[in-house]
Simulated assay, not measured.
Amino acid sequence: MNSLPELPPHRAGLVAVVGRPNVGKSTLVNALVGAKVSIVSPRPQTTRHRLLGIATFQDGQILLVDTPGLHSDSRRAMNRYMNRAARGALAEVQAAMLVIEAGQWREEDEAAYQVLAEARVPCVLVINKTDKVKEKGSLLPFIAKVTGGREFAAVHPIAARRQDGLRPLVASVLAQLPESPPLYGEDEITDRSERFLAGELVREQLMLRLGEEVPYSTTVEIERFEEDGNLLRIGAVIWVERDGQKPIVIGKGGERLREIGSSARRAMEHLFGRKVFLETWCRVREGWSDDEAALKQFGYAE
């Protein structure tokens, strides 16, 4: 009598996604989850909060802890908060992914590696943005240089934006996790509320549409979040730090604020799967990003 082939054990666990700013951590999380749970822009420090992305596969479930980029600037309360959030993500994880950019190994990459080495969790090295490397033959020497004298459970060159190389990466990450049934439902994609995600989608538009410095002086507070049948009524306040920044956000005749609101609304409707009525305002709170009390009010809490 023939026996049935033994299925591989189901695995599940928490995996921190760590690296310096702007290496593509959030893009990778979204690609693995299969939905947009982390906002993305070309700017460093787009991610400010620790966020859980739930990636469910046949053989296991990876709970991706997307973190702010580790960086050396700790002069302001916001920077210190983001570094604490990134380091705090390692407290309960079973594994980690160190995400770097192909062809680059900077001091901040080394600092991120040292943080992971101190945490003593299995670390998979993810070399992202390989699609931007013109000389593909340079990748092998680069990998040899980065891995020399450093310990990694596996190494995976990928292009998260194009979803290249993700299947073998998933297999390597699952191999680091304990045997466990799924920890979340198959249709769940994040532990964050729709209210939180709404604020992030507004902030994403600020990062994409404003000039060099202003986006870092803005944050978003959701004042109203009401369900009206299949309609969501959302009121969002965009906070800036100085009076001179307010007209920049609003734009001539309110045009830029309308564009921000319109794009954010469409993104919400796509993510939430229902109609959204969004109102936006811009207000000033002097120096909020260096004010611990203001940070807590706006949701930047450990």
Rank of each mutant, 00 (worst) to 15 (best):
G148P: 02
E221F: 13
K134N: 12
L206Q: 03
P182R: 09
E107K: 14
K296R: 15
P9N: 10
K132Q: 14
S41M: 04
E213M: 09
A301T: 14
R161Y: 12
P21L: 06
F277Y: 15
A55W: 00
G299L: 04
K296A: 15
E92Y: 05
F272H: 13
L64A: 03
Q114I: 10
Q104E: 15
S72Q: 15
R233C: 12
V276L: 03
V249R: 00
G235W: 07
G287Y: 04
Q176T: 14
V170W: 01
L116M: 09
R203C: 09
I189L: 13
S262F: 06
R20C: 09
W281G: 01
L98M: 13
L32H: 05
A119F: 03
S262Q: 13
L271F: 08
D73S: 13
A144Y: 10
L98G: 04
L169M: 11
S41A: 11
G165W: 01
K296N: 11
R48W: 03
S180A: 12
R150W: 08
G235S: 11
P21D: 04
L231P: 04
V33L: 12
I158T: 02
G53A: 10
F277L: 10
E6D: 13
R150F: 07
G261E: 00
L98K: 09
A198Y: 01
G229H: 07
